[in-house]
Each structure stands twice: as structure tokens, then as C-alpha cells.
Design a protein around this nucleic acid. Structure first.
Lengths: 206, 206
DNA sequence: CCGCTACTATGACAGCTGTCATAGACGGCT
DNA sequence: AGCCGTCTATGACAGCTGTCATAGTAGCGG
């Protein structure tokens, strides 16, 4: 995602990756198959070979890729934190997007969000893929929260809230061409998240 | 929005409204001009008459319409609440979307989000329109919060957080075809919002 | 050498897109 | 009547879409 290179391994993976990048900036509708092969420097004939399911398959794989990527990033964030806190994890998730928004060149939206908005209504398989991607993203977040001593049920709810808020704030940030929506989300939500460690109640031992 | 009828006044307004509805379900790319006039039962020739700016103008007006609509809804929510609380307002905003999601027929996304994802990157005017729509939405929310005794600066931040979270949760709810993302957002964010009435600091006097 | 599989190349297809040019209808003026 | 501004009708345009059919190349095992 952050890496702009398309020199990944095979042509197949490059095409999926390029689909992700193009979907991020213009949505699914504006992402043509010819654009994908051109962006991936892949042979056009490989399209119908690797993706006999057509555009739908390509989009679905792009969404799955994004879900795996997000999960991996969460794992990296928690691994990199000296003393893990919920607010710290959330701040790291937010920072990822603010960094990408501040690089002026490439599109900086979420490919999963694009797939939801453009395809959720008329492609059931894509809708399922987006739901799976969100689950792949939310899962590690919830796991990290429980590891930080947040009760399981609460951790899952808060993980969902975190992903929802990041996704929505990213939308507003793109509209305003300003990261303040993301930053205020991190600032306002941080205390709430940290307040959930320990017992499930809102006990706060200053 | 909730009203599915297109029998609004003039053909012009019907077309804008139809554009909103079609953008909600398939995004901007999947919303053709011919689809709009058909959905609005409007004469095709009226397109280039009322919208000489082409599709871009139509989309922009649809986004503006949505912003005004959202602002009006917020006003109605606060007016309808016996004893207004931040969590109550947020719950009302969430309920609006859960209600629309549970009506199975029509598309149920946010047209502003669709415009951001599909057009923000290559149409500056549309991007501006989406920013204005979010401002039109956030403004009354912040105003309502200050009326509930939330300090001004904090109210603006929380209003932004509320809209962000609703927008993101709606995205997840569409992906999962389940309103639980919206409901957990309301449940988890409610106490935080109510905790902000009174002094602006994050002091929490259990 | 054959045959086989994996991959690539290329051109064509019908269908749809937004946009425009042109012409017509309607109603209210003076 | 004539004229005009507002609105509508219709057909065409070039461009792009995803998909497919067909043919071709490379490499490898036999």
C-alpha cells in the first residue's frame, strides 16, 4: 500500500496490487481492466488467464489482499509498541492514513470502502469479500485489545468502532483534503479506548 | 432520502433527487445520465437544459442536496427530543441509517461518501462539494452539542467524530449486511459523548 | 520429433458512456 | 399576427467498457 512499486513477484500479484492502487483513487468504476494491466506492466493476455472470473474476481482478490494487508499492519503496530495501549494502537492506525494522505501523488482511499460503495449492492461475492476483509482487519485489533487486558466482548466491540471510525474519518479527510478528521478521531477516541483496559466497566484509576 | 417517491416538484428537482438515490446504491460510476432521467421520469432533453455543466454539475447538486438533507434531519432530531443529550442525538442519527438499511428494496449508502470515493481525486469541484456537505452536516450537530452545554471547541471535535463514525459504521454495515456496526458505534460512543457536557476537560468524576 | 501445458498476443465484438447539434413544441408576450 | 424564451425531442458522435475467440510462443518431458 505505502510502497508504490509494482515490481512484486509474478504478473498475477502485480495485477492484484495494481487493482488495489487504482481502486483507491478512483473507485471500482473508474478502474478499467486495461488500466490495471498497463499499471502493472503486465501482458494483457494474462488477464483472462489468471482471472477467468473477469473483473469481479480481480476486484474480489484486491479486496482480500487489502484485508490481509491491514491485518499485517496491525500486527506490526502492536509488535513495534514498547508498552502497548489501545490508544497507541489506534494512533498508529490513524497515522498510517495521515501519512498516505500527505503523499500528494497517489490516490489515498481505502479499496475496501470503494468496493463496498461501488459493488456491494449488485455483486454478492464482492460484498462477501468486503465483509471478510473487514473481519480480517478487525480480528487482530480485537486480539490486541484483549492482550492489553480488555475484556473479550468489549474488545470486539471497540475493534469494530476503531475500524469504523478510521474508515469514516478517512472519508472526511479525503473530502476536506485535510487530515484533521483523522487526528480528532484519534484524540477524542483515545481516552475512551484506554479506559476499557482492566475490568469491563468504566472504572478509571487515575 | 427515506421517501422513495420521485414525484417532487419540477423535473429539475426530481433529477437531482434521483441522482442521489442512484448514487446511494451503485456509486457515481454506475449512475448513468440516462438512468437518472428514466428514474426521475424526466424528459431526456431537460438534462442539457438544466445541467449544462454535465454530469459533474448533477453530481455536485446531488451532494449539496444530501448535505442540506442531513442538516435538516439533525435539526428535526434535536427538536423531537424531550431532554436532549449527545448520546440521544447520536442514537437518532444512527437509527436513521439502520432504518434505511432494513428496508430491503433501495440502495442504502451515503451519496456523499460515494462522491468522495468516485470523484474526489479527479474533480476538484465535486471534492469541494463533498467537503461542504460534510460541513453542512457537522455544523448543526456541533451547534446542538453546544446547546447541550458542551464547550464549543470540544463540540466541533465531537461532531466531526460522530459524523466520521456514522459514515464508517455505515460502510461496515453495508459490507456485512448487518446493522451491528452501527449499533455498537452508538453503544460505545454514547457514554463518551454524554461525558463531555459540562467542563471541556477529560475529567471523569465517576 | 511430438505433444503437452502455461502463458501471451491481438483483434474484434456488442454495449454503454457523456456530450453535443439540431430541430421542434409550448406558452406568453406586444 | 409575429416573436421570444423556456423547455423538450431525437439522433448521432467518438470513446471507452468488459469479454471473448483465436492464434501464437516458450519451455519441458517423453
Amino acid at each position: 500500500m505505502a510502497a508504490g512499486e509494482v515490481s512484486g513477484r509474478g504478473p498475477r500479484e502485480r495485477m492484484v496490487f495494481s487493482a488495489v492502487q487504482l481502486m483507491r483513487r478512483g473507485g471500482v468504476g473508474a478502474t478499467g481492466m486495461r488500466d490495471v494491466v498497463a499499471h502493472a506492466r503486465a501482458p494483457r493476455g494474462s488477464l483472462q488467464h489468471y482471472f477467468p472470473g473477469g473483473k469481479e474476481q480481480l476486484v474480489n482478490e484486491a479486496v482480500e489482499w487489502a484485508g490481509r494487508y491491514a491485518a499485517g499492519q496491525v500486527a506490526r503496530f502492536v509488535a513495534a509498541m514498547a508498552e502497548p495501549t489501545p490508544s497507541g494502537l489506534f494512533a498508529a492506525m490513524v497515522r498510517q492514513w495521515t501519512d498516505e494522505l500527505e503523499t500528494p501523488d497517489a490516490g489515498s482511499g481505502c479499496p475496501v470502502a470503494a468496493a463496498v460503495i461501488d459493488c456491494a449492492e449488485d455483486s454478492e461475492s464482492t460484498r462477501t469479500a468486503t465483509a471478510a476483509a473487514f473481519a480480517a482487519w478487525t480480528g487482530p485489533v480485537a486480539q490486541a485489545l484483549t492482550d492489553m487486558n480488555v475484556p473479550t466482548a468489549r474488545a470486539e466491540a471497540l475493534a469494530m468502532l476503531m475500524v469504523s471510525t478510521v474508515e469514516g474519518a478517512l472519508l472526511m479527510a479525503r473530502a476536506e483534503r485535510d487530515v484533521r478528521a483523522l487526528k480528532t478521531a484519534a484524540r477524542e477516541l483515545g481516552p475512551l479506548l484506554d479506559g476499557a483496559v482492566g475490568t469491563g466497566s468504566t472504572v478509571d484509576r487515575a
